[in-house]
Design a protein around this nucleic acid. Structure first.
Lengths: 226, 226
DNA sequence: CGGACCTTTGAAGACATTCAAGGCCTGTGG
DNA sequence: CCACAGGCCTTGAATGTCTTCAAAGGTCCG
């Protein structure tokens, strides 16, 4: 078994050196936190199994979900700028992680340029993901937002060699709504609508995508008449 | 005059080495592009004077503004992950930039760890900024979005030792709306509303903030009755 | 079984968008 | 120098989408 939990793209020899940095943690229970907003930044984390939600609390005390992370994905970069995590990260289900102490990673990067480059790429991937979310939030209807999220999760699971049509949503409707800038009720209604249109089969947190093309079309142009 | 166009926070000796990398470009005309979406990633840029808008074109061909950049701010990081710029960047007015070739920066980072660390911080600042925008887009009303943007621009100008209450918006109402996920009309109406409430004095692209506290309160909690 | 929490559904209402029209400013050409 | 065309911005009215408020049904876990 390949125990490394980082995305690939590095020489095997360098990979070995990277691997020794990584600490495997004992699994987290649902709702258990990885780090809290404001804590000193120490490490970045990779999801081995399970899923993570990250969120911040804004001026008026409301929670704002900023990301969901699935196996193979990294989180924790938000702490780098201020040396303190901006978000809180919690497990949505039983979740196991790899911890990568940033200082060690940084040291390794200083001696091996290719590792340095690699880390940079990982960070800037987070930028790209965030910008995609910005575009989604700014320009789209509730249906488009939800369709995008479902397709995004589907794509991300494919990369882990899991089914691309049957997915398990570890987060609540409320958390989805919060993430997408919608209310719980709207999320529920849109899922109901998609189900009636036979785009999805929804069974609580279990979703089967029946018509991927229809969802994709929806994103490109707002829905036509009923 | 301090010719460096990067935010401070580095030893003078290292700063000198950084400075030699920087290429000062001849000023850009309004609407002139810095780079186009899809072009190979070569450099990051710092705004010396003027302002920059970055945007991408999404699936259905619509423009989505992803950022505005003012003097002292850096842009172009979005190209790092794929080695191609994801966004197009154009000048909103006559603008002069510093170009920082990424390869040279990377090489310097490899020999001077403190520079490396510094670059990392710069990148992760972009992440934090993006996540703030996400929170803004997801959770807030038109009034809150616009109030946030104006206060954000005000704060950023203060850092450049410019007036914090009198500002010049180099972008059109449409570009503001696009950025915030609103229509032109809504932006115009909200600005009108703020003016009637004496929060602002608006004269075309010239804005004077009359009641910063009111705007801040607005962000914390949605507006009370008229 | 009971209670807490999450989800669904309905009805009413609010907010932002859409469609439409008019005003203002700028730059160009007569 | 004025007239006019084309942007961009503003304003109004109607529409629509999403939210809010309310209630009820499910599900999970003690």
């Amino acid at each position: 078994m390949n125990s490394i939990c980082l995305p690939v793209g590095l020489d095997p020899s360098d990979l070995d050196k990277l691997e020794v940095l990584i600490e495997r943690k004992k699994p987290l229970q649902p709702r258990e936190s990885v780090f809290l907003s404001g804590e000193p930044f120490t490490s970045i984390y990779a999801v081995r199994s399970g899923s993570i939600k990250s969120f911040c609390i804004d001026a008026d005390g409301r929670e704002q979900v900023t990301g969901f992370y699935f196996p193979g994905e990294l989180f924790g970069w938000d702490g780098l700028a201020n040396e303190h995590y901006q978000n809180t990260a919690i497990a949505l289900e039983t979740t196991s992680l790899c911890e990568i102490p940033y200082e060690k990673l940084d040291n390794l990067g200083n001696s091996i340029p290719s590792v340095q480059k690699y880390v940079m790429k990982l960070i800037s991937r987070e930028i790209n993901a965030d910008q995609q979310l910005i575009a989604l939030l700014a320009g789209n209807s509730a249906q488009q937002k939800l369709a995008s999220l479902l397709l995004s999760i589907s794509d991300r699971l494919v990369q882990q060699k899991l089914s691309s049509t049957r997915l398990w949503l570890p987060m609540s409707r409320g958390e989805i709504g919060n993430y997408l800038g919608l209310t719980v009720e709207t999320v529920s209604r849109v899922l109901g609508h998609f189900q009636r249109k036979k785009y999805l089969a929804v069974n609580k947190k279990e979703i089967e995508i029946l018509d991927k093309k229809a969802l994709r079309d929806l994103i490109r142009s707002p829905e036509e008449v009923e």
